[in-house]
Design a protein around this nucleic acid. Sequence first.
DNA 1: CGAGTTTGACCGGCGC
DNA 2: GCGCCGGTCAAACTCG
Length: 178
Amino acid sequence: MESFPLLLNNQPSSSYHLPSNFVSTSQLFSNPQNTISNGFLGLKEETVASSSSNVQSAIQMEAFRGSSETNAKQGKKKGDKKAKRPRFAFQTRSKVDILDDGYRWRKYGQKAVKNNNFPRSYYRCTHQGCDVKKQVQRLSKDEEVVVTTYEGVHTHPIEKSNDNFEHILNQMQVYSSF
DNA sequence: CGAGTTTGACCGGCGC
DNA sequence: GCGCCGGTCAAACTCG
């Protein structure tokens, strides 16, 4: 199901299950002031309010079921409409935008974003039958902040080892302070 | 030579 | 209807 390689926990060797109903339709990372000084910028939920100094850990992650009904321009076949594609967005503070999460991604596009000096990159999971997408974007205000948005859920196991994943965490200089 | 990236073109949605 | 804009396609290209 949804074994998202998220870093909500500190244990890099178990499966990171994301509650599939982890939904909280809120606006997207609309708080540029959220510049925490940690690695992550906090789960996007309501918690944004605490962006002042509290901050702590966590990914600024936002999950919203965007497309259950009208969104979704998933041009699938006819009849088969847009399956609900949960989207999870989170910000991380990293110098590199390639956050290796254990899956293999193929880049299929890049676009300039308005009001942003940095382009947004579009990736798709290369696993057969898995059409999970993600897009990576950098904040223009803080070029160190990278916003990653996942769309869909992987239906297959991670292709890389979790050890490596641990590595990723370091790479992102994430977390914190637990 | 295969897998992944680059990059301009294309397309659909939306606001005017 | 038109133009803008975000997202995707696909051919050419690069790299291991």
